[in-house]
């Protein structure tokens, strides 16, 4: 499998805090890569460096290189809007806009210049179907998205991310605010999606990583400790600290 994203020696500082220490990691195309580790270990921070959402954090300095399809994400010529079209993101808290379901999904395509009503209808329908939400909401596309349940809202957010036809989808603990049944639905959805997309997911839930991820990276206090195929990480961890974490001795 090809490398979709290549990160080399990434260092990140928040003011005086050294939040990422020399992280190097390749994310494979059409696979699910999970970042695990205790809270505050830098896994979410690393995820956000991939589509430059850290640009909006004050006093945040990044060194090292991140290549997306061989192009440097932090090159000054990069158009972040195009970057984020290619690298979509789903956040921890479901965050639909206070608009109708339809407008939520159509928001991204409209940004990127699609005005044709029929085209938008098609994208909305396909995205909702891809996010396994279409059957539940097809009869109320024009009602407020805030009326959906938490799990539905999160799938809506995934649909919204899919609607701009990204290559990569980043998910930052997408199920931590959801009930077990909704969580399961989203996991199934991600497994479906990986044929077409490259997926990176931050999770604090090790079972989740072992259930869905092809590759897993373990982070600890800003360092990437170990990275490999999920089955290897969970069965024969090389590092003592990974083993401790996986067997539940801390975190």
């Amino acid at each position: 499998m090809e490398n979709k994203i290549v990160a080399k020696n990434v260092n990140l500082h928040y003011g005086s805090k050294h939040a990422l220490k020399n992280v190097s990691l390749d994310i494979k195309e059409n696979a699910i890569t999970a970042f695990i580790g205790p809270s505050g270990c830098g896994k979410s921070t690393f995820l956000k460096t991939l589509n430059r959402m850290n640009d909006y954090v004050e006093n945040c300095k990044i060194e090292g290189t991140i290549l997306l399809d061989g192009e440097d994400v932090y090159d000054e010529k990069v158009d972040t809007t195009v970057l984020r079209k290619k690298v979509g993101m789903v956040f921890q808290q479901p965050n639909p806009f206070p608009m109708s379901i339809y407008d939520n999904i159509a928001y991204g395509p409209r940004i990127h210049g699609i005005k044709n009503k029929r085209e938008l209808d098609r994208i909305v329908e396909e995205s909702l179907k891809a996010a396994a939400l279409y059957d539940e909401v097809s009869d109320r596309l024009h009602t407020s998205a805030l009326g959906l349940s938490g799990g539905q809202q999160q799938r809506l957010c995934i649909a919204r991310a899919l609607a701009v036809q990204p290559d990569v989808i980043l998910l930052d603990e997408p199920t931590s605010a959801l009930d077990p049944i909704s969580t399961l639905k989203i996991e199934e959805l991600l497994l479906d999606l990986k044929d077409k997309y490259t997926i990176a997911i931050v999770t604090h839930n090790m079972q989740q990583a072992s259930r869905i991820a092809d590759y897993t990276a373990f982070f600890l206090v800003g360092e990437m400790i170990e990275y490999g195929q999920t089955k290897d990480i969970f069965s024969i961890p090389k590092d003592k600290r990974t083993e401790d974490y996986i067997t539940g001795r801390f975190g």
Binding site: Y56, T81, L83, G88, F91, Q93, Y107, I111, R160
Partner: peptide, 20 residues
Amino acid sequence: SYREAALGIGATKWYMIRTV
């Protein structure tokens, strides 16, 4: 989260402000 969501899809800042 509204801001993050809009920017995360690739909206420019001014577009995000106008539409969200």
